[in-house]
Each structure stands twice: as C-alpha cells, then as structure tokens.
C-alpha cells in the first residue's frame, strides 16, 4: 500500500443501472493542485460528488489520510474537506455573511453559537474573496462572479485541508476567473491546502495544476503534468476532436485550442 494523502481505488458507481464511474483509481498527495478534465458526461462531477460524500452508494474505496471515507462521520469529513458545487444559477435568500458562515457548520454543535474564532474565519474568508464590502448583500442580488466568490469564501471558511471544486471558473468573466485562480493557487501554495478541481478549460487547468487527470467514459484515460497534457495527440485522444497549440513567448506551456490548423 502506498501512503498517498488521498487514495481512490477502483471506484465505481451506478445510476439506475448505468455505470457512470468504472473503476477509477487515483492517488493525490497533500498540498497538490490536481485538475480533473474530460468531455461532458465523462463522470467528472460524479467523481467530485463521491469524494465530497454526496453520493455514498459507490463501490471501491476512498481513503483520506489513511481513513476510509464511509467510516468518517459527516462532521469529521466536513472538517477535512469542503466542496464548491457547479454554479447552477440557483440562489438563496441568505446574505453573503450568513452564507459564508454556513461554512462553520462542522465546527459548531447544536448547542453552541458562533465563537470568536468562527467570526474570524468568516472575516478572513470574506477578505480573501474580496467580499468584505458586499457582506450584507443578499446572495440573490449578486452577479454570477460575485456569487461564485461567495461559494468559494464559504468553502474557505470551512477551514479544511482539502478543497473540492466543480468547474469553479466556468461562465465567469475574465476578472473573476483570474481572482479565483489566484485564490486557489494561494490556498494551495501558501496554506498547503490540497486543491482538486474539475476544469472545463484546458488552459486554465494547465496554468495552475501540479497534476492533471483526464476522465472519459467513467475511466481515467490519462494522468500527467501540465506540460504532458497540453500535447496535441493526448488531447485529441481525450476529447475526440482536433486541437491546435500556439506557443506563448516567455511561457513554458503553449495555449491550446480546438480546431484544424488550417
């Protein structure tokens, strides 16, 4: 047995008879920034939801820090990892501050109210996400980018060693994309948080990841570094479509696009 921080072995899951994940095995080290890429419907979101404890009817094993996930209580698991769902446009009537405070849930019992350290964690998270000025605003009144920031802030307030994110920057404008990447990178590099993110965009994934895993039809079809992933042949195998790449002056990684060279 290796001793990776997160160890997933032959993870499979079915939904009404269809096998969505077919024996996924993954090892992730603590402090790594890992991206999951792959075509639509490949099982990326399903994988993240299995890891987050949202789905529990899977087979195989998921271990975090040597402990099997099903044996961990829901609060213990939530102190270990936080989750940012795909932005689906659904809002809620809480204010930004109240919403970010929901991240403190696993640290509180039913009989205690928020302590000083909880308020501090909320404040720090609001500050890091640049939401201090918006703290009294209702989530429903925010723009898509600000709302995504609030979701990330709530996950940061949860104060976990692992951050699971499902397409954190899809559909956002460039400024919010940049902000989110820098928050996630700093969480990883400065605070040693293990970041596991599903990315839709290969260039975004390549720019921040230590390691990239590609899923296709419920199976891992490729694992490698950012440089290995931006290889045209590799991408064409993953996505079944033509890619072209363009070198960037002064940068190690090329930019990749879909399309024919013509």
């Amino acid at each position: 047995m290796s001793n990776s921080f997160i160890q997933i072995e032959s993870l499979s899951i079915r939904f009404s008879g269809n096998e969505i994940l077919k024996g996924i095995s993954l090892d992730i080290d603590e402090g790594e920034y890992v991206s999951i890429i792959g075509p639509n419907g490949a099982g990326k979101t399903t994988l993240i939801k299995c890891m987050a404890g949202i789905y529990s009817h899977w087979e195989g094993s998921i271990q975090i820090d040597g402990q099997a996930v099903p044996t961990l209580g829901s609060r213990t698991l939530a102190k270990l990892q936080s989750y940012v769902p795909q932005a689906e446009g659904r809002t809620n009537p809480l204010t930004v501050e109240e919403f970010v405070a929901t991240g403190r849930y696993p640290h509180l019992s039913a009989f205690t109210s928020m302590r000083k350290e909880d308020y501090e964690a909320v404040n720090t998270a609001l500050d890091r996400a640049g939401l201090l000025a918006l703290r009294k605003r209702a989530i429903a009144t925010l723009s898509g980018g600000e709302r995504q920031m609030a979701f990330i802030a709530a996950a940061l307030a949860q104060d976990t060693r692992i951050l699971l994110l499902d397409e954190p920057s899809t559909f956002l404008d460039y400024r919010h994309q940049t902000n989110i990447s820098s928050i996630l990178k700093s969480a990883c590099r400065d605070s040693g948080i293990t970041v596991i993110a599903v990315h839709h965009d290969i260039n975004t994934a390549a720019a921040s990841s230590d390691r990239i895993h590609a899923i296709k039809d419920g199976q891992i079809v490729f694992s490698g570094t950012a440089a290995e992933t931006t290889d045209i042949q590799t991408l064409e195998k993953i996505y079944d479509t033509k890619f072209i790449s363009a070198p960037l002056p002064g940068r190690a990684l090329p930019l990749v696009f879909t399309g024919d060279a013509s």
């Binding site: 939801k49 949202i54 609060r75 809480l94």
Partner: peptide, 17 residues
C-alpha cells in the same frame, strides 16, 4: 443552522457535514 443549509441546497448541506 441545518434549515439554513437545506435552504441553500442538499448537496452543499451534506458537504458541510
């Protein structure tokens, strides 16, 4: 707190513990 989290969404409620 649990009702707040249910209002936000069941998946998120689970992930918060």
């Amino acid at each position: 707190r649990e009702m707040n989290l249910f209002m936000v969404g069941e998946d998120l409620a689970i992930s918060r513990g």
